[in-house]
Simulated scan of single mutants.
Amino acid sequence: MRGITILVVEDELAIRKLISRYMIREGYEVIEAEDGEVAMDLWQNHEEIDLIILDVMLPKLNGWQVCQKIKEESDVPILLLTACSEEEDRVMGFDLGADQYMAKPFSNKELLARIKNMLKRIKKQSLEDQLEVAGLTINTKARQVFYDSKDLEFSKREYDLLLFFINHQDKVFSRQQILDLVWGKDYEGGERTVDTHVKCLRKKCPSLKEKLRTMRGYGYKLEV
C-alpha cells in the first residue's frame, strides 16, 4: 500500500524545505513546487497527491487561483499558508474551497497537527465510500470494482445494476421492477435487457455466478 503524498507549494526555498523535511520525517512522501504554474503541472500529472499545503503569495499563479482551479475538479484537502491574517482573507480562502488556513509565522507542531487531522477525515471518508460484498471491493466514489485485487471493467449500466443488487441484498425483484428502478420507467427496451446485463455481471465477476440467483419465471436476487 502506498504512503500519503503531500504537495508543498511555497516560493520561499527555506520555508518550503523546512516544511518538506518535517513532513518526510513524519513518514509522508513530498512533492515540491516553487510557483503556481509548477503546482498546477504537478497536480495534473500526479494522481497520487492526497493533500496540498499551499502558500497564497506565489509567482505566476497565486494561491487563490491554484486553490480555485484544483477545487473545481477535485475535493483534495488544501491547507492555505499566508502572511495575511485578516478575516476577509480567511473567508476568501474558505469560499474558494480551502479546508484549513494558517497564518505565517506558524508552528511546525501545529501544522503537523492540522495535517494529521485532515488526513484522518480523508481516511474516514474513504472507508465510508468503500463496500465489500460477495468477494468484491467497491469504491462508490470512484465507481471502481475490484475482485481478487483486479480492477474490473463495467459499463455505466452494469455498474448501476451491480450497485442496485448490492443495496438490496436477499430481496427478489422482477425483471420489470429492475428495469423501472435501474433503467427508469421511461425506458422502452424489453425485459431481456436485464438478462443480458446479469449475464455480463456473472461473466466478469466469478463470485457472482452463484450469488446472483435467477428466480425462475420471475427475476433475480443477490443472495449474500
Score class of each variant (00 low, 15 high):
2 R>A: 12
3 G>H: 09
6 I>Y: 11
7 L>C: 11
11 D>N: 15
12 E>V: 12
14 A>T: 13
16 R>H: 03
19 I>Q: 14
21 R>V: 00
22 Y>C: 08
24 I>R: 15
24 I>G: 01
25 R>G: 02
26 E>V: 01
27 G>C: 05
29 E>D: 14
29 E>Y: 08
30 V>N: 11
31 I>A: 10
31 I>G: 05
33 A>P: 01
36 G>R: 11
36 G>W: 07
36 G>C: 04
36 G>V: 03
38 V>A: 14
38 V>D: 13
38 V>G: 02
44 Q>V: 00
45 N>S: 15
47 E>S: 15
49 I>H: 14
52 I>F: 07
54 L>S: 09
54 L>D: 04
55 D>L: 05
55 D>M: 06
56 V>T: 07
56 V>N: 12
58 L>F: 07
59 P>V: 06
60 K>M: 05
61 L>W: 11
63 G>P: 06
64 W>I: 04
64 W>H: 14
64 W>N: 10
65 Q>F: 00
65 Q>W: 01
68 Q>L: 06
71 K>S: 04
81 L>F: 13
83 A>Q: 11
83 A>W: 03
83 A>G: 15
84 C>F: 09
85 S>C: 05
85 S>D: 15
86 E>P: 00
87 E>C: 00
88 E>P: 08
90 R>N: 02
91 V>I: 15
92 M>T: 13
92 M>A: 13
96 L>M: 07
98 A>F: 06
99 D>S: 12
99 D>Q: 12
102 M>D: 09
107 S>L: 03
110 E>M: 10
110 E>I: 07
112 L>Q: 11
113 A>Y: 04
118 M>T: 10
119 L>N: 12
121 R>W: 02
121 R>K: 15
125 Q>T: 10
129 D>S: 14
130 Q>M: 13
133 V>Q: 10
134 A>W: 01
139 N>F: 03
141 K>D: 02
142 A>I: 00
143 R>D: 01
143 R>E: 13
145 V>Y: 07
145 V>N: 13
148 D>V: 03
149 S>G: 01
150 K>L: 08
151 D>Q: 12
151 D>S: 13
151 D>G: 00
152 L>F: 06
154 F>L: 15
154 F>S: 08
155 S>A: 08
156 K>D: 12
156 K>V: 11
156 K>I: 09
158 E>V: 02
160 D>R: 13
160 D>K: 14
161 L>T: 05
163 L>A: 05
163 L>E: 11
163 L>R: 14
165 F>I: 05
166 I>S: 08
167 N>V: 00
167 N>A: 09
171 K>L: 13
171 K>A: 10
175 R>S: 06
181 L>Q: 15
183 W>S: 05
184 G>F: 03
184 G>L: 04
185 K>C: 04
185 K>T: 10
187 Y>C: 05
189 G>T: 04
191 E>L: 15
192 R>F: 09
194 V>S: 09
195 D>K: 14
197 H>C: 00
201 L>F: 08
202 R>P: 03
203 K>E: 13
204 K>L: 02
208 L>W: 07
208 L>P: 08
209 K>Q: 15
211 K>S: 14
212 L>M: 06
212 L>Y: 08
214 T>F: 03
215 M>G: 00
216 R>K: 15
216 R>F: 04
219 G>C: 08
222 L>K: 07
